[in-house]
Design a protein around this nucleic acid. Structure first.
Lengths: 365, 365
DNA sequence: TTGTACGCGTTATCAT
DNA sequence: ATGATAACGCGTACAA
């Protein structure tokens, strides 16, 4: 009746497995497996009988872990996040990105696993969680986590990541977008400009432009784009570094900036979420936007049009970014299963300056 | 050298496994396993030697799927979501909830898997994804998904779910909060009141109060709370049903309501996100808030204080909700591993009416 | 440290 | 076409 294990039906009331069901029906384990996973391999009558017996025994279907081992696939893909997954949802832009990934995976029956980059204790999700592929999103390349995933040789798509090694990737023209934003301010006649980006490590607050270093590829690129233009225009901006995990979206930043550079007439913010905080602070302080202060955000967050005045910003299509990343990964996974080798794809999505009400010429120009 | 499988070191360049490493070093597979998973079981010198050999061979560590099967645990927990996971991130409240769960799991090295309730093709994440426990969040009890998870006998915590069966759960005093909100309006003297909730299925738009049925437990409870008070006050509200997946947060709702009940002086919205849309529409139409129209939201979304006027709303602590759900699940998982039986816990978190600037007495009262 | 016996299913081959 | 047999997949627990 069985070749390589004890007959559970005689071993008392252990766990219910395929074998338990098989014994009850009087067929081989294989037949029960087929009843669940390959219905076309047996007669409908027998299948019903098997399923009924399974139901009677309280058998829920093949154990996912065992199936994953036997099949070599788990039915879920991972998203490797910058240090804390808790920060991943902080703004609507990130949420939209995940939403788009989920929407692309869902019809394929693939689940989405969120992976922290940080090892805790002796476990490191990037190394220890079973999955069929990984989207590496905006996380510190220094971290061991990214290296771990690479070594596992899983299908990989890099998003918002510098990419030296030839992995497939989805990026955004952050630098060009940032240039356009800075140029817009320069064209309007601004000369006293401040920049706001997020940083992972101290020091936070106002730092010399030279030593400003954003956290994450997007920060670095946007900062680079801004300074490309400002330097060319002979403008030395003030730079404010905000902690990565700040939740208040730029509230308080304006005070620091005005203290460091009185008479600042324009601000380039890393995100619309930050820009919104600045705008609110300005309004609460009686500083008119855009008459006394121009503000440019980034992302074209839905928030940008809910504010009054609406934010001038740089649009990126995060929905497309998520869709592309997910579908590229799905393709790579299918290729691997079929034994094909996947050709690398590196997509860079465009950005676009959207001029709205939060920018204008400086007061005294 | 090996008991039950071919010696891979002689079988060509197959996959690198524990055995491959063991053969290379000349120790047993078990020793290599210990080198990775139980460092205290062998000498430091031997361990280094093993790890070095593994590195040379490009061995990344024990295969997660195999380990999950052997150990009986996967290192990740699932969150079962209402139909589409894509809708899960639509507002900041949901995002904060997930963020809080992630923050609680992360230090334990546990990953978070998002599960769609909808089966696609022949796969059904709730049945087919390996995990150690599940948080069932705000999803339709009718769905097969929830039943599937229950049958798998995984540790379970229900959040924002009606709970007949005695599972552990985390809920919020939605009904009491809604009562407070409605009472606030009644006390201010409003009599022409409209309600906005989300519904899963058509018909959408204005429906008779009697046949209004929200989608999801929270909708049902809030609706019940509102009507408790309004009915007692002899007020028959107008009810507007919004599609569950509407992304525009209540934009357009105001027109429909005013068409159905001209002279409406107050609106109770299911969420702050919806309330925000109504507020913006009002302002764009030149309707003064709160002088001509009072608006009450729900959740105390950070958004509520970014608006002008700030929203009167009903606060719930979603961070605590997430933290509790995650830690209750972790406890249950530990109990199970230890063979203990977990005592059920059913927590109901309080709500609190927060009166801000978006409500006031009706114009002609 | 190591042998042994699984965990629970699937893929591939074989017999009728 | 149906079903059975055998051989893994890759580790881990436990006793020796």
């Amino acid at each position: 009746m069985r070749a390589d294990r004890l007959d559970e039906s005689e071993a008392g009331v252990g766990r219910v497995t395929l074998q338990t069901v098989a014994d009850k029906v009087g067929v081989s384990r294989m037949t029960v497996s087929n009843a669940f996973s390959r219905p076309d391999q047996l007669s409908a009558a027998l299948r019903d009988k098997v399923l009924k017996a399974a139901d009677d025994l309280g058998y829920t279907g093949p154990d996912p872990a065992a199936r994953a081992l036997a099949r070599g696939s788990t039915g879920s893909i991972g998203v490797l996040l910058s240090n804390s997954p808790a920060d991943a949802f902080t703004d609507e832009i990130a949420a939209t990105f995940f939403s788009s990934i989920a929407a692309t995976l869902s019809p394929q029956g693939i689940a989405l696993t969120l992976l922290s980059s940080e090892p805790s204790g002796d476990v490191m999700p990037a190394r220890d969680v079973a999955m069929d592929g990984v989207i590496v999103y905006n996380c510190d390349p220094q971290t061991g986590a990214r290296e771990q995933v690479e070594r596992r040789q899983l299908p990989l798509v890099l998003v918002d990541q510098p990419n030296a090694k030839g992995f497939s990737s989805v990026n955004v023209e952050d630098r060009a977008g940032a240039r356009a934003a800075a140029q817009h301010l320069v064209d309007l006649g601004h000369t006293r400009i401040a920049l706001i980006v997020k940083a992972g490590d101290p020091p936070f607050g106002i730092v010399p432009a030279a030593m400003a270093q954003g956290q994450g590829y997007a920060s670095i690129e946007r900062l680079a784009g801004w300074t490309d233009v400002l330097t060319a225009a002979g403008i030395e901006p003030v730079v404010l570094l905000l902690p990565l995990d700040s939740r208040d979206g730029g509230r308080g930043a304006l005070d620091e900036i005005l203290a460091a550079q009185p008479g600042t007439t324009a601000i380039l913010a890393f995100s619309d979420a930050i820009a919104a905080g600045v705008l609110l602070d300005a309004q609460d302080s009686g500083i008119a936007v855009p008459d006394q202060l121009s503000i440019v955000g980034f992302d074209d967050n839905p928030l940008a049009t809910r504010l009054r005045p609406q934010l001038t910003t740089v649009r990126q299509d995060v929905t497309e970014k998520g869709r592309l990343a997910a579908s590229m990964l799905i393709d790579a996974m299918q290729d691997r299963r079929a034994g094909r080798t996947t050709k690398r794809r590196a997509v860079t999505l465009p950005t676009e300056l959207v001029v709205r009400g939060s920018t204008g010429a400086p007061a005294h120009s």
